[in-house]
């Protein structure tokens, strides 16, 4: 899969709340490259004096017909705050696609559970949409602090079944994703997880206890995003490996969790 540096053009900016923004961007000079769910882009931050490096942001959704890629960004620091302020028509320089993605179902009958917490739900929509195109129906289990932190539920519901937990009980079941009753009621062939590390660790131990293959998406701090600088390493059973190149998606059996 060929990586490239593109001057994308922002086509729409939807500020979902004070903390989250949905950016859609197109490649004005040609088709977007082939991308896989779980891969990410290194976005250049153009108007922040206090940042230096690019920001790794997962691919939220890709529409090849519209030649459009979407990013769901949470405002965390100065870099993401700069992305939050993007305007339609502005340039979004991106290196993509980077890293290895999630394992996809081998057949439409396979039951995949896609578990997301907070902004970690972002790459799961791309995965759900890709599964839908294969004829598979994903099951999403999405967790958030509160109802107002649940993002883009309609988009997730459009391609699969959606189950929700909130910590305050304002939507779905109260508690954490690992406590949701769907885990007791249904059997799954595979689990894909992206979210805060404690959540991914408890999902990983759940999957291990049930013998279900499980992949998690890590977000170690990165510099190059290309496997050159060796800054973003995760200590795995194979030693220190670059999250940007060998990940960001790892089978939990490879991790020392």
């Amino acid at each position: 899969m060929m990586k490239c540096v593109l001057d994308l053009q922002v086509t729409s900016v939807e500020r979902l709340s004070e903390r989250y923004v949905l950016l859609a961007a197109t490649n004005p000079v040609g088709p977007l490259p082939e991308m896989r769910p779980g891969q990410f882009a290194q976005l250049r931050i153009d108007d922040s004096k206090e940042t230096f490096l690019r920001r790794p942001i997962s691919l939220h959704s890709v529409d090849y017909e519209k030649n459009e890629v979407c990013f769901l960004v949470q405002k965390v620091g100065k870099g993401t705050a700069s992305l939050w302020q993007k305007q339609p028509g502005s340039t979004l320089n991106a290196i993509l696609p980077l890293g290895k993605g999630f394992t996809m179902p081998l057949s439409p009958e396979q039951r995949f559970l896609l578990v997301g917490g907070g902004v970690g739900i972002a790459p799961l929509l791309f995965m759900g949409e890709a599964m839908q195109r294969q004829g598979a129906r994903p099951v999403f289990l999405l967790g958030a602090r509160s109802k107002s932190d649940l993002l883009r539920l309609d988009a997730y519901r459009a391609c699969g079944d959606v189950y929700i937990t909130t910590e305050d009980g304002s939507e779905g079941e109260k508690g954490f994703v690992t406590q949701h009753s769907i885990l007791q009621k249904e059997k799954f062939d595979n689990i894909a997880v992206c979210g805060p590390k404690p959540m991914m660790m408890s999902m990983a131990s759940y999957a291990k206890s049930k013998g279900i293959p499980c992949e998690v998406s890590l977000e170690n701090m990165m510099a190059c995003g290309l496997g050159a600088c060796l800054c973003c390493v995760e200590d795995t059973l194979d030693g220190n490996v670059c999250v940007c190149k060998e990940g960001p998606v790892f089978g939990v059996e490879k991790l020392k969790w």
Partner: peptide, 23 residues
């Protein structure tokens, strides 16, 4: 060499620090 543990990088004003440790 396994190099140093993570975190190995810190962003700074117009630069970055690294302690990869020759992995």
């Amino acid at each position: 060499r396994e190099g140093n543990p993570y975190p190995r990088m810190a962003e700074t004003a117009q630069g970055m620090l690294n302690c990869v440790g020759l992995q």
